[in-house]
């Protein structure tokens, strides 16, 4: 059950008319962020709709650390007010997400962090961030051998020797 914390809009100076949200990370850090910034997240948007319906606002508990959460907030702040096709729920699926230079620098982090961000983005339903993370992870393994991929992805070879050498596992057609 989420802890009920009342956020009084009038006591916190906000920018313009945007209201504030209280996000609580898994390491119990309380982070206040403008609602407008987080509207890119479908998950948060749905929560906010719930607030509107019940006229009750409470903190939103998130299952990842403040380190990751701050990173996501940084992303959302950067794209505040921008239209990104992938995040438009009414748009046709754009297929492969476009390369955005800022994202590439933003996601220039180690593999563990990248995996945490993509999980957080998935949880928060931020499609554009999931897409950018997926591209970044794909960039790490593109052109690598199977053995190198296992190393990078932290995957163990769970094939039996017979399976590994059988032609059917090498052929796709």
């Amino acid at each position: 059950m989420p802890t009920i914390v009342s956020v009084d809009d009038s006591t916190v100076p906000g920018e313009g008319s945007s209201r504030l949200l209280l996000l609580v990370s898994s390491d119990n850090k309380h982070i206040v962020v403008e609602e407008d910034i987080m509207s890119r997240s479908r998950f948060i948007s749905k929560q906010v709709e719930g607030f509107e319906a019940t006229s009750q606002r409470h903190a939103i508990l998130l299952p990842f650390s403040s380190f990751v959460l701050n990173k996501v907030i940084e992303y959302c702040s950067h794209y505040r007010g921008y239209y990104l096709l992938e995040d438009d729920p009414d748009a046709a699926p754009p297929g492969r997400s476009p390369v955005r230079e800022w994202d590439q620098e933003f996601l220039d982090v180690d593999r563990n962090m990248l995996l945490r961000i993509i999980k957080a983005a998935h949880y928060l339903e931020i499609k554009s961030l999931v897409g950018s993370c997926a591209r970044a992870i794909a960039d790490m393994i593109r052109g690598k051998t199977t053995e190198e991929m296992r190393e990078i992805l932290g995957v163990e070879n769970d094939f039996t020797p017979e399976e590994e050498h059988s032609p059917s596992s090498k052929c796709t057609g």
């Binding site: 794909a138 051998t145 199977t146 769970d158 596992s169």
Partner: peptide, 16 residues
């Protein structure tokens, strides 16, 4: 989805 076919073939050999 971001991978080319050669990387996909290599990738699918990595685990079940």
């Amino acid at each position: 989805e971001n991978l080319d076919y050669k990387s996909l073939l290599a990738c699918q050999m990595s685990c079940r």
